[in-house]
Design a binder for these strands. Structure first.
Length: 407
RNA sequence: GGACAGGUGGCCGAGUGGUUAAAGGCAGCAGACUGUAAAUCUGCCCGCGCAAGCGUACGCUAGUUCGAAUCUAGCCCUGUCCA
């Protein structure tokens, strides 16, 4: 359908919309007033990773279209764990750890959203503030009466778990009730009218909408984004080294830049639309590039995403390093580095020390397989020694490069 | 509380006394081909050691045995059914 509100038009043309609970209703609302909308985030780690970036960008779009982003930190629900898609119950975190995580995660939102007291300024809330107050009996009375177990059992998050004969605790089973309550609470206390989230959150969002309608007679809306996978079928944001973290201190900017630079050809256009502010006509031009020319589009993607998440300077430095290292065959200053003692260093120790191999055995296998290079030359002798005294370029495979600097 | 089934390497999943550091698959790493892409083919894939080898590992603990992932007992956890 064609939307009249700038919000839905923007979201639609950049590929954020998977499902809407009431497209017409929301379109009308968004065309006529500032719509506060929220997305919930977990506080299980000190940083969010690339898998959450669609949601963060969605809040950014909301603000760009003149509405109000509400970042909901799951300080309360993190103490429970969302059963969705997980085979195992989540570990419980201490209150202090959760608070510290929220503070750390806040820094990434500060880069991508404008916070403040104005009508379209972003705000951050923590559901521990209201869920923590709730008494069990009170919750059962107020909220429990609006849920039937029959229906709860039919939700994918529960059903799949049962079908796979994976355990699900009562604690987790309650997650959806608390999630639904969040929406109703935010609708009442902050005038929130929209909840967004990944497609796996559909059931939770619908629950919240119904609960809000039943308890308060208030009409609220839901929107989900498509499940993002890479073109080769993998999950977004996972690499060998682990998750691609958004926070500066969780992953070096150069590695973050490289993650985007190595995007599959087929994903370039999609990622540019979702993760950058590059205008659509420019994206259309970039994704039409054929053959190796598409690499130029990948550089734009890497630069833009890094700029948004890590800042202008970090993006420029990462690009300069990549350019010097790959195109120039030289050394960029942002590469991982290791001190090289005057007496030199064994190749094995150098590979382990700089982080290209997790153990000495792995380093030896890398060497034996022909993947270790010193100053661009493959070295296949496990006992090779690197002499000290001058700067050395150390590589593992074609993509991982580092510098050994005389100490 | 009872009966039955099950708990194996990052994941899935074989393995029922020695030749098992444990088949196979996925994921991952490297090589070839390329464009820092994909697909494909090849090699690698617990740790330490130059090596012979040593250490650690099949839910936990104690046993049987020359020898246990494999047998026994107790315990913990999960599922299904019964109460």
């Amino acid at each position: 359908m064609t939307y009249t509100s700038s919000l839905l038009r923007l979201l639609d043309e950049r590929g954020y919309i998977h499902q809407l609970t009431d497209a017409e209703g929301l379109d009308k609302l968004a065309a006529g007033q500032v719509v506060p909308g929220y997305i919930g985030f977990d506080a299980t780690a000190p940083s969010l990773h690339v898998g959450s970036l669609v949601q963060i960008m969605l809040l950014r779009r909301l603000q760009q279209a003149g509405h109000k982003p509400v970042v909901l930190m799951g300080g309360g629900t993190t103490r429970i764990g969302d059963p969705t898609g997980r085979d195992e119950s989540r570990k419980m975190l201490s209150d202090e750890a959760i608070e510290a995580n929220i503070a750390s995660i806040r820094t990434i939102f500060a880069r991508l959203l404008h916070f403040g007291d104005g009508p379209t300024d972003a705000i951050m809330v923590n559901n521990h503030d209201w869920l923590g107050q709730l008494g069990y009996i009170e919750l059962l009375q107020k909220v429990g009466t609006h849920f039937t177990v029959n229906r709860m059992l039919s939700f994918d998050s529960v059903r799949l778990r049962l079908e796979r004969e994976q355990p699900m605790t009562f604690l987790e089973f309650n997650y959806m009730i608390l999630q639904g309550y969040d929406f109703r609470h935010l609708a009442r206390s902050a005038g929130v009218r929209l909840q967004m989230g990944g497609s796996d959150q559909w059931g939770n969002i619908v629950n919240g909408i119904e609960l809000t309608r039943r308890m308060d007679g208030q009409e609220v809306y839901g929107l989900t984004t498509p499940l993002l996978t890479t073109a080769d079928g993998g999950k977004m944001g996972k690499t060998a080294a682990g998750a691609v973290w958004l926070n500066d201190d969780a992953l070096p900017a150069y590695d973050f830049w490289q993650y985007w630079r190595n995007t599959d050809d087929r994903d370039v256009g999609k990622f540019l639309r979702l993760f950058t502010d590059v205008p659509l006509d420019e994206i259309a031009r970039l994704e039409a590039l054929g053959g190796s020319e598409i690499n130029a589009a990948k550089v734009v993607l890497a630069n833009e995403v890094t700029r948004l998440c890590r800042g202008e300077a970090a993006a420029a430095a990462a690009e300069a390093t990549a350019s010097a290292t790959f195109a120039g065959g030289g050394l960029g200053q942002d590469l991982p580095a290791l001190a090289l003692p005057a007496a030199g260093l064994s190749l094995v120790d150098a590979l382990v020390g700089i982080g290209f191999a997790a153990s000495r055995g792995e380093a030896k296998r890398l060497i034996a397989g022909g993947g270790a290079k010193v100053d661009g030359e493959a070295v296949t002798d496990e006992t090779a020694h690197i002499v000290g005294g001058s700067e050395v370029r150390l590589s593992a495979g074609k993509k991982k490069h580092g510098i050994l600097r005389p100490a």
